[in-house]
Design a protein around this nucleic acid. Structure first.
Length: 105
DNA sequence: ATCTTGACCTCTA
DNA sequence: CTAGAGGCCAAGA
């Protein structure tokens, strides 16, 4: 089990129509390093297995380096799931913010 | 073991 | 809003 694996596990726990932030995922794992989350998602093995499009920055901004088509794909997928946007690059975090339930397995 | 890289976050101007 | 700088830490070579 690597750091990346844990990131994937948490991301996969995010239900459709909801989004979370790198920082939240990091905190859920007991760390503050949001960068590790980003690295993990960049090394993302599968877009279906790991819905990286549901992971955004603290400002609700979409990932500029989405590994499966860029922020455009992210926007499309999130919108298709019912996520609302305040801008073409920012999701309504306050409305779709997802919090993890102490996944400390 | 060392060195480089990085989907981030926060502060300052 | 943009631009620059610092910090933090794991993966890969």
């Amino acid at each position: 089990m690597t750091f990346f694996s844990r990131v994937y596990a948490l991301v996969q726990q995010v239900p459709p129509g909801f989004v979370t932030t790198y920082g939240d995922i990091a905190m859920a794992m007991g760390t503050k390093d949001a960068r590790r989350v980003g690295q993990a998602l960049h090394a993302n093995p599968d877009g279906e297995l790991t819905p990286c499009h549901r992971v955004v920055a603290k400002d609700g901004r979409l990932a500029p380096h989405y590994a499966f088509g860029g922020s455009v794909e992210q926007y499309a997928k999130l919108k298709a799931e019912g996520v609302t946007f305040v801008d073409r690059e920012h999701v309504n975090l306050e409305k779709h913010r997802f919090t993890f339930d102490t996944p400390t397995n």
